[in-house]
Design a protein around this nucleic acid. Sequence first.
DNA 1: TTAACGTTCAACCAAACGGTTGAATATATT
DNA 2: AATATATTCAACCGTTTGGTTGAACGTTAA
Lengths: 111, 111
Amino acid sequence: MSTPRTLDHTLTALADPTRRAILRRLSSGEARVTEVARPFSMSLNAISKHILVLERAKLVKRRKVGRDHFISYRSEPLDAAAKWIEETRNFWASRLDTLEQLLREEDAANK
Amino acid sequence: MSTPRTLDHTLTALADPTRRAILRRLSSGEARVTEVARPFSMSLNAISKHILVLERAKLVKRRKVGRDHFISYRSEPLDAAAKWIEETRNFWASRLDTLEQLLREEDAANK
DNA sequence: TTAACGTTCAACCAAACGGTTGAATATATT
DNA sequence: AATATATTCAACCGTTTGGTTGAACGTTAA
C-alpha cells in the first residue's frame, strides 16, 4: 500500500490552530494576505508561511493580481480527509472481534 | 478563539504514515510493543516513541502486565476528529452556497 | 543468583517547525 | 522619477520531531 503524502500534508496543515483559524477567516471569500493576517498577533511573515503550508496541502488557492495575492479556500482536501477518516472508522467498527476484545480487556482490568 | 489542543494532538498523530500503520496493526486486538514494532524497518525505540505520540492523542491505551505493555486502539479521538471535520465541511458548504447565491443575484442584477 | 527479555530512559543528531527581523522584489501611486 | 504598498526571500533562533545507539530498569526463567 503506497503512502498518500497528500493526507500527511492535509492533516499536518489542519493540526495547527492558527491555520484552522485562517481557513475560517476565508469564509467570506477571497482575501489578500495582509487581510488574512490582520486579526492575528503575529508578523505578516509568519502568516505568509502558514499560508504556504495550507497551499502545499491544497487547502487554499492563490490568485495573483498585480501585487495582491488573493487567497481562497479549497474544499477538496477536507473532503478527502473526511473520506479517509470515515473509512478508517468503518474499518474499526467492522472488526468482528471488537466486542470480544473489549470484553477481554474489561475482564483483565477487573482481575 | 478556543484552542482544543486534543484536536491538535489527534491530527498531529494521524499525520504520520508510520503511526497510521501502527493503528491498523492494532486491528487484531491488543499487541505488545515488540509485536507492534515487528513489521517496521526501524528500531524498537523509534516505535516506542511513536506509541507515545499516539498515547498523548489518546488514540491508544496502554495496559502493563509484568514486563509486557499491551497497546490497544481507542476510537474516541477519531470520532471527535470526524465530528470536527464534518462540522467544518458543513460550515463551508453553507458558506459556499451563500457565495454562489450572491454571485447569482449579482449576475441577475447586471442583466 | 544469574541470564534473558521487554521496555523505557538518556544522549545525540539532522531536519522541520513556528516564529522573528531585515532586505529584496514587484506593483501602484504621486 | 520617486515613493509607498504588498508580498516574499533569506538568515537566524529556539523547540520539536523522527530517528539512532547504548545503558538502565523491572520482570521472568534457568
